[in-house]
Design a protein around this nucleic acid. Sequence first.
DNA 1: CTTGACATACGAAGACCTTCGTATTAGCAT
DNA 2: ATGCTAATACGAAGGTCTTCGTATGTCAAG
Lengths: 129, 129
Amino acid sequence: MRRDDLPKPTDSELEILRVLWNRGPSTVRDVFDTLNESKPTGYTTVLKLMQIMADKKLVRRNEEQRAHVYEAQLPEEQTQNQLLGDLLHRAFGGSASRLVMRALSSAKTSKQELVEIRRMIDEMEDRAK
Amino acid sequence: MRRDDLPKPTDSELEILRVLWNRGPSTVRDVFDTLNESKPTGYTTVLKLMQIMADKKLVRRNEEQRAHVYEAQLPEEQTQNQLLGDLLHRAFGGSASRLVMRALSSAKTSKQELVEIRRMIDEMEDRAK
DNA sequence: CTTGACATACGAAGACCTTCGTATTAGCAT
DNA sequence: ATGCTAATACGAAGGTCTTCGTATGTCAAG
């Protein structure tokens, strides 16, 4: 039943995935235009990366149109979980609380965000009863 | 005043760093013995990695003894911050609360840990006043 | 002093990542 | 049809990471 044994995306691949999550299904041209604004890059570079990602099944590709349409294979949340779990295991020895506390203490978190996080903790405690 | 522009350690390098953090200053033999228990590897592989890490300044090396003694350059907390900040930026668009909430919801966190996290949030809110 | 155990240094292979140039093909306007 | 634009396919260079074999050096025991 495993649908989740995809390779961990590299940094460049993750940039592309983020564009696809934000835009939804997109052509190479779409992704290139978006990425090129912040970070100058070559069109064929993006194309090649996306072709490789299709080989790896990180993205799905629809070839009906001349300009193929790409779509992230996994939803954003699932990939975030994957990367977070990986870091949790690799750098924190599996201790989620240490990870969370470090994230809270190092990154500046707004009051509003703190409220939301507290609410989530409340819910978890309730459910854990 | 920058003391923090070290390269992000790779997966293998992080494994070695974790041994050094746990054991304190150690020889290649020490690290090899530790790693080899969980994951069969070659002695010279570990040696080479640690030499490269010394070049990159990820570790400091004391050559007074015949068996050189290695020590992590940065404390564990600082490297965790670095990796977390990197992931935060790369996969969460800088939203710390989304990262924290995802970590909380996906990893199972004990009641005791939840209490600690809540206390930390309290402190942050106090300080933010 | 010779040998054996064990240390570092070094080179190189193989895998992957990123980048880009070039070739080829598809569609459209003239 | 011809040619222009824009798309995909492909190969290869250059970099990094990981692994390991081999060479070399050092120390101590016999």
